[in-house]
Design a protein around this nucleic acid. Sequence first.
DNA 1: ATGTCCGTAACCTACGGA
Length: 251
Amino acid sequence: MRIATWNVNSVGARLPRLLDWLQTREPDVVALQETKTNEAGFPTAEVEALGYQVMHVGDGRWNGVAVLSRVGLEPVSRQLPGMTEPRYAVADCGGLRTVSVYVPNGRSVDDPHYAYKLDWFAELRRTLDDQDPAQPLVIMGDFNVARTDADVWDIKKFDGSTHVTPPERAALESLIDWGLVDVTARPGKNDRPFTYWDYRAGMFHKDLGMRIDYVLLSPSVTVQDAYVDREARKGTGPSDHAPIVVDVTLP
DNA sequence: ATGTCCGTAACCTACGGA
């Protein structure tokens, strides 16, 4: 089974590239983030025409997550308990419980949005208390946290910034510590692990990026291959994130 | 790195958000 996660930064703006990517990469299960549209705005018919079932949670101009599957899709949850924004979608896909997450950005450490981000993480961790550890599970998406200093292009530039603070890292770690594997992709350009590059200042060209997207997977699931699909970040009209593509074998 | 891109509301540009 091939699974993938991609922050598309608007499914509307990315539609031609998304459809092309689905046809060339042929993932079985896909988690999307930042669809930036409501239910009516999601290109359900176009995606279904490629053989996928669709679960989308979105309410307008910001956020929005989806799960696509061509190996069956049974919706499980459309909302993180206590959180109203559309940042969380869960579906069972071909025996794999699939969670698409778009963790709040945090903005700055003194912004209320930072506290909201940590609260959001805590709620996400809480959902695992009700999760059967024997059920193959993947939580994938945009976590807006760089797990280590090596996951940003220059840690010195991040003094006082979000995405690298100990509380954010501890929150991400708490998910892994529950019993999930942070799937390691093949090394990318310059042996860096990045999944996101700012649009500005030629950051992608200079490979000044961040690893803030993750595939957190049950250890019972075997990983055959994993890579960051940099090709999807190139050319005209890309998202600022690249997909992560992982080939797995379920137990 | 603050150099771009997204959607929206309201216009043909400004803004919030990332």
